[in-house]
């Protein structure tokens, strides 16, 4: 194709820019602020809160949901891998429960479509809570205050579905609005510093935003861990959990595929990744640049991006996480 280089350059740039700019304006920004906390039946929310903190959900009554998903620690526990009911570390790092209802699927490998399903799986998974729903229902139904609460909130006896619904209903209220970045998105452009705004620009320019977008800044797609490099070979010690979605589908294409996690409250939910291998934001950003973007950022750009990420910390019960 004999085209003169400068012209071809122009053509190439045009080819790329025209549709992208045009459409970028048309669809608006790829990030959107958190919605308001939904108004759900207060009795059910309250039951869910109680259950969330109730260790009777685990086989030996040692673990509650809140044991790992600590609402005072960003909805996780800061551990690389939390300890299960048997005292052994779980296969993957504990993700935050905050804003989990906005994730399109639950778990790192996207096994559960809903929060109810997530609760269902966690409770009966041997290494985690290791219990049995029949046992849980029996224990909860034996408690008169629960019996009364369920009769009032659901008009029927305690069963597996109402328990899961209560838990999920409570978790749907666990949103962390009012992060500085959300307020920026809502029009308060002064709230971010210049560096933070540059950070956001870098975040977009380097393509972080290709996966971390939407209302939850992630959490709405699956992605291969190691697009432009073999993360697992470099890290070593491969585990079954590293296979990611492959463990669910058995599809070779899903090898090392994980749910893209939400970046909301990312500054307070270290360590990072499914294996908890990145203890700091810097380490995590480095890994992302290397294996997902295949690029080497300048030190300044990285620092700007990290500054931007710190603006994503929201509030819960009126206090910053």
């Amino acid at each position: 194709m004999p085209i003169h280089p400068p012209f071809r350059t122009c053509a190439g740039v045009l080819l790329l820019l025209v549709p992208s700019i045009g459409l970028a304006q048309a669809i608006g920004g790829p990030l959107t602020p958190l919605p308001a906390v939904p108004a759900l039946a207060p009795e059910r929310v309250e039951l869910g809160r109680k259950l969330f903190n109730d260790p009777r959900l685990s086989s030996n009554a040692s673990l509650a949901c809140a044991s790992c998903h600590r609402l005072d620690q960003g909805g996780a526990d800061g551990q690389v891998r939390s300890l299960g009911v048997d005292g052994k570390p779980l296969p993957v790092n504990t993700p935050s429960v905050f804003n989990a209802s906005l994730n399109f699927r639950q778990f790192w490998d996207g096994r559960a479509q809903t929060l109810e399903e997530q609760a269902h799986l966690v409770v009966q998974r041997p290494g985690e809570m290791g219990s049995d729903w029949q046992v849980v229902v029996q224990r909860i139904a034996a408690d008169p205050s629960y019996r009364a609460g369920f009769a009032k909130a659901y008009g029927k006896a305690v069963d597996e579905h109402t328990l899961q619904d209560a838990l999920a209903t409570f978790q749907r209220t666990l949103l962390t609005p009012d992060s500085r970045f959300d307020r920026y998105l809502q029009g308060d452009t002064e709230i971010l510093s210049k560096d933070e705004k540059y950070g956001y620009a870098r975040f977009q320019e380097y393509g972080c935003i290709a996966c971390h977008q939407g209302v939850n800044i992630g959490g709405n797609m699956l992605q291969k861990f190691g697009v432009l490099g073999d993360f697992f070979a470099d890290r070593g010690n491969p585990t079954p959990a590293d296979l990611g979605r492959f463990n669910v589908t058995g599809d070779e294409e899903d090898r090392h595929v994980f749910k893209v996690p939400s970046l909301r409250n990312v500054a307070v939910t270290a360590p990072y990744f499914h294996d908890g291998s990145a203890p700091t934001l810097e380490a995590a950003v480095d890994v992302m640049f290397r294996y997902q973007l295949g690029r080497t950022p300048s030190t300044d750009d990285k620092a700007l991006i990290i500054q931007f990420l710190k603006t994503l910390t929201g509030e819960w019960e009126g206090k910053p996480l």
């Binding site: 549709p19 992208s20 669809i27 790829p30």
Partner: peptide
């Protein structure tokens, strides 16, 4: 169609129809 032509695309609208 939009997703295949734009760079900074928000994938939420591809999730909602499924739900």
């Amino acid at each position: 169609l939009k997703a295949r032509t734009s760079i900074n695309y928000n994938y939420d609208p591809l999730v909602w129809p499924v739900v």
